[in-house]
Design a protein around this nucleic acid. Structure first.
Lengths: 274, 274
DNA sequence: CTGGAGTCTCCCCCTGGGGGAGGGCCCAGA
DNA sequence: TCTGGGCCCTCCCCCAGGGGGAGACTCCAG
């Protein structure tokens, strides 16, 4: 039996960390003295401790480490690990995107901003809607669009789009609507007919990678502010050319539209009604 | 003038986050109402907010973001950014190492562990020593070894080595000694003559990448425990073949030695005397 | 003038660590 | 069998960089 200090030396996990892992149910000492509370480990627990160490180096959250350790089936275990390696891949992609975007930001070649004020008519579309956390936007969008495609089939009546509740940006959670235009929109699964209301829309087009889209948002917002307008409802995006159309990011075009009121009333505080 | 909610919509930074950035001195509102405390921003601050957003996506700490924003010279600013990109590189390398090591750990091909109990004589060497945090070990080692090489020159009397206080593993901070054997060791800069005491040493050799070294530590520890020995002083490593000898990691050999006492006394609790 | 959306501050919580205080336990030597 | 000192225990506080929510005040259009 090994006291916690000896076990610490053998595994290169600090004593404090071992105690935390005990508390979290990750690595239970083989025996705990009932009266003194002393933790005693065995040499057979060393490999487990090392696996935990590696997983933590990969920033796998403690509950997930526990799941991995407790899954008896090696295949299932491998799948859980692979899932986290996928997460690392995604994180790397995010980092790469931020680096690229930062570079573009620091070497600004200000493109002429073309803004249009347009009266957008109401339209009934096939949509998927839900309350979403800001971090889940990407994943939720992918799922919702896939479901739309599955229900509507490949023949499109026009580019897909989305409505984004301002609370999504201001408070990190809000209503999200993803839609595709359709004649006589069906009701199936999460897909429902939704009527996008008529509105006065300030519109511009974002070119290229979506990572930079907030820059265009900023420019559009500045334009709105300078023209003494005020936001009146969820922001709209329309994906004129996107990854579903071409693999060349430079060719992508996203139409961004802000509903506005002249000066006056903000009937719903800029939020998306239900 | 833009209220915080409008500014939030334009920059995709949440209201809470904007308040935090104000508090941290990252992004001061152009104007703060003295009586109400309302924050008011201008459209000119949007690009700054976007740069902050990008830097935070790269996990640049808030104080460093502040430094970057406040450095007036573009060159200096670029240098600060580049520094953080270097940090990202290092992190990526660490992640890659952990992935590789995890793979090796999960597909174990248990190499025969050859352990030797050896009476190590005392030796006087040229050494650099200091108290070091566990996270700084790599960097400190590199600096200390470079200084040793600069003082001693290229002709080596034997492989370099190190002594590692057990507190380094147990408590995350401890004394570290890096040395090179030398006849008549000089005193220059941080380099000093140090006498490594004679000791009974349990020794094995780790093969390959240093990322896996804790596995060998674990095996050695298990051997020590099974033979009813007890640790008596700082762990020793000797770098028989390392990156300074060959670029092939599979050829690297690190000798790992644990000073032990048979059963009996632990004169200094396994810590490194001064 | 009024009501509701917007904003303020303040406090608590999260993760995965670390620092340190105060006190009990273990065990080799005498 | 006692003793001392190293080991281990629990408990509380702190860190970054966020989020949740309460309770009160402000802004502004009708």
């Amino acid at each position: 039996m090994l006291a916690i200090g000896e076990f610490s030396r053998m595994t290169h996990l600090s004593i404090r960390t071992l105690r935390r892992y005990h508390e979290a149910g990750l690595l239970e000492p083989e025996q705990v003295d009932a009266s003194s509370g002393y933790r005693y480990y065995t040499v057979e627990q060393i490999p487990t401790a090392q696996v935990i160490h590696r997983l933590r180096e990969l920033d796998v959250p403690l509950p997930d480490v526990r799941r991995i350790l407790r899954s008896p089936d090696p295949d299932q275990r491998a799948a859980l690990v692979a899932q986290h390696l996928g997460r690392l891949e995604a994180e790397l992609a995010r980092t790469r995107a931020a680096v690229g975007s930062l570079r573009r930001l620091l070497v600004p070649e200000p493109p002429p901003l073309e803004v249009e004020l347009r009266a957008e008519p109401a339209a009934t579309v096939a949509a998927v809607a839900d309350d979403v956390d800001a971090d889940d936007v990407i994943g939720w969008y992918a799922g919702a669009m896939a479901e739309l495609d599955a229900v509507l089939g490949p023949t499109a009546e026009g580019p897909p789009g989305g409505l984004y509740d301002n609370a999504l940006f201001e408070r990190g959670r809000g209503r999200m609507v993803v839609y595709r235009p359709a004649v006589d929109p069906p009701t199936r699964g999460r897909v429902q007919p939704v009527t996008v209301p008529a509105v006065e829309l300030v519109v511009t087009t974002h070119r290229g990678e979506h990572d930079d889209v907030d820059v265009t948002y900023g420019e559009l917002g500045a334009w709105v502010a300078r023209n003494a307008l005020t936001v009146a409802g969820p922001v709209r995006e329309r994906y004129l050319v996107g990854p579903r159309d071409t693999d060349d990011p430079d060719a992508w075009r996203t139409e961004i539209g802000w509903p506005v009121f002249r000066v006056g009333p903000r009937p719903d505080g800029g939020r998306l009604g239900r």
